[in-house]
Design a protein around this nucleic acid. Structure first.
Lengths: 258, 258
DNA sequence: CAATAGGATATTGCATACAATACGCAAGGG
DNA sequence: CCCTTGCGTATTGTATGCAATATCCTATTG
């Protein structure tokens, strides 16, 4: 075998520090530095590969091949599997390998139910905690998003839409909330890609976003809470419809070899 | 120093195997079987040890000693660390070991905010999905809990209280919700143990529980949602108070070894 | 011909070995 | 006397090896 330290990092390291020496000031309340270990990098790569669909749901993750692909030994790879399993992205079948978790339609429904209250909460908190400037930024994003809507540009619309929700989530100032949220969205990100919205739903969504902005600007947390929950409920309906449709076209179960 | 496997208290491991053969009946519609791997058992043991406070927040988890203690090699132990880190129970400092995550007062506040909407959602869904029989069971639990309250028996009260919330969570029929919920409660379980409620708060809590039962029995999801959120908000206040008090008494930074 | 049993092969779980990094201490210099 | 600096030790990160299952294929039997 080849062996002998194969081309390790994608990048050797990323010293987290932006600014470089100039030890003029009192030196460094610098935080621990973001050093990366192999398995950390692998986790990220694998997550991306799975979300991007390189490994479809139900697919087996072949240990040996991935080792060769990443140029690492089995130890860090296996540690990565454990992490991904804890995130519900893969499934560990003892003695029988690792598979990409199958996300069923029921899962999507369930997750959207949860996301509904989480986003609602983020909105409520954002009303309390965001600065006027931050809200103004979101207003601006919103206007641009509406322009994209009017021009029928789906992808840019989608991006800004996402951005708005993320800003509100960030503005809530609750890291634990954001963590939970991102973990759940990770599991349905792929489904979201697929879900293309109908013209009718699109119009409705834009309306809901306008209401969101109003509530946010008047800092009416309770109202924003309700709007966001409704908004997510509608999103869920749209996603489910698309997904069921897609499934009926290609009733691939994912697993099931022969 | 001492060295040689300090006595951590629990037993070195527990082979999971419960039932043994008796191939009498038609043999086994048994699902994939819950086989346990070493690291799985270790994860559980460690989680318990941390929650029960054998490793205080901030304490370092010594790899070598734990290996000897569990009687395993470093590989499965390290895999367990990765899982616990993904659950936010421990922190991995690259090249510098593993520590029990410090849960700050801010974390507690944040987590309770999230738990509030999660429990509220569970109540709302439970109103839709629980059977009358299940609700009746909860009513019975509630009555028993009230009796404990009237007798001032805190621990039994606490247990049943917990049980009721868990039943509602289960009755929501949303596994993803339950997963997220249990992951978050895991991080504050320890704080909850400590938090002893004042007489005033206790009375209030019982009142809230009565209202919960009413809403549940009339299947008024919206109302139960609000009640549960309020209930959790109050719990949070109580917990924060107790925690701050406890902290001011012993401003220990956590670690403390040897 | 179908079904089962047996074994060869591949894959997984765990242990150990080696390498790299951080930590502590002592000696030397300002 | 305090700070720096180099080395020795301990701990962590990764690789490899060995044992235990699972998987697959073939051959044998009813």
């Amino acid at each position: 075998m080849a062996t002998s330290t194969p081309d390790y990092g994608t990048e050797p390291l990323e010293v987290a520090g932006p600014e470089h020496p100039e030890w003029g000031a009192e030196l460094a309340p610098r935080r621990p530095i973001a050093r990366k270990t192999l398995h950390d990098s692998i986790v990220e790569s694998l997550r991306d590969m799975i979300i991007s669909g390189q490994f479809p749901p139900g697919a087996k993750l072949p240990e040996k091949e991935l080792c060769e692909y990443f140029g690492v030994s089995r130890t860090p790879l296996r540690e990565s599997f454990k992490v991904l399993a804890a995130e519900n992205i893969v499934e560990l079948l003892p003695s029988r390998g690792v598979r990409v978790t199958q996300t069923t339609v029921e899962d999507i429904d369930e997750i959207f139910e949860v996301l509904g209250v989480l986003e609602a909460l983020s909105g409520e908190l954002a009303c309390l905690r965001m600065s006027d400037a931050e809200i103004a930024d979101i207003r601006e994003l919103h206007e641009r998003m509406v322009e994209h809507y009017e021009r029928g540009e789906r992808m840019p619309y989608f991006k800004i839409n996402q951005e708005i929700h993320e800003r509100i989530m960030a503005g809530a100032g609750n890291r634990n909330l954001a963590d939970v949220y991102s973990r759940l969205t990770g599991r349905i990100r792929r489904s979201r890609y697929l879900s293309s919205l109908s013209d009718r739903r699109w119009k409705q969504a834009v309306g809901e976003h306008a209401a969101m902005l109003n509530a946010l600007e008047s800092r009416d947390g309770e109202r924003l809470f309700r709007i966001l929950r409704e908004h997510l409920k509608n999103k869920a309906d749209a996603a489910r419809t698309t997904l069921l449709e897609a499934e009926s076209h290609s009733p691939s179960k994912g697993s099931s070899e022969s």
